[in-house]
Nucleic acid binder design. Structure first.
Lengths: 132, 132
DNA sequence: GTAAACTCTCTCGTTACTAGAGGGTCAAGC
DNA sequence: GCTTGACCCTCTAGTAACGAGAGAGTTTAC
């Protein structure tokens, strides 16, 4: 099948498929005589794997690692588990950061009347912040 | 003062200050006779404002808006409040997304023994995902 | 037969910087 | 007078992960 159909069936845009190939995440696709990329069922499944792993926030290079682990079935499950756990740690750090930001913003918003008057403590706070 | 001192006092790296100027977030700095950028106290305070707003996750262009609101004291506080609230909404969306990712990863990690055996349900799950 | 739809490669734009090249300026020390 | 080091300058390129668009060839449908 051509790239358009592979895109439709995997949910990965054609542009993105070419990009993944260009950066080495996917092997170079075989070509039909006219030079169009040619895909099969297994390729579509690989694309779905990539798509789902990306949706879980794995970077493209991490997805490359996961694909490698999948292809080499001799590898221990602990390798996969380790990658997944470090991703969880990344997420936890990001969550804490966002929650801190949110708390500060919430405090600022509550201290601001939000009416037609120009005074708003948000800006003053940003200019003269307490340490945090 | 030169850019190095302004950087030290504001916490914004010199390269970043030049970058902010180049994208129009900051006005072009005045220059000493030798061509060096020249900063004063007010500039340092502006840099601190920018730094703090960036740390709260406002984009550079949003920081530009906030600076504009600060300079034009006639503007209503509701403008500032609206920007801050939309930033909170952004954060809430991101939090929900990360929490969803985290839950899925947690489930996968729990289903994986993490030992020397090659079987790990994480990869199988990524290949044959249930809808979510 | 032709027009739409699809494919190709290539380059640029995005965000918010950071790193580095190549070069000018300035003060201190010998 | 000269060098050394710490500054400063501009400009370019690289980062992550694509998306948009140009310009051109191919296939498909009517």
């Amino acid at each position: 099948m051509y790239i358009g159909q592979a895109a439709a069936r995997s949910g990965v845009p054609a542009k993105t498929i070419r990009y993944y190939e260009s950066v080495g995440l996917l092997a170079e696709a075989s070509r039909t005589p006219n030079g169009y990329r040619d895909y099969n069922e297994a390729d579509v499944e690989t694309l779905r794997f990539v798509s789902r792993a990306r949706a879980l926030g794995f970077s493209v290079s991490q997805v490359g690692e996961l694909l490698g682990l999948y292809r080499d079935r001799q590898r221990a499950s602990s390798d996969v588990r380790t990658i997944a756990q470090s991703r969880i740690s990344d997420i936890d750090r990001k969550l804490a950061e966002l929650q801190g930001m949110r708390a500060t913003l919430e405090k600022l918003v509550h201290s601001c009347h939000g009416d037609e008057r120009p005074e708003c403590p948000i800006l003053e706070d940003l200019f003269a912040p307490q340490q945090h």
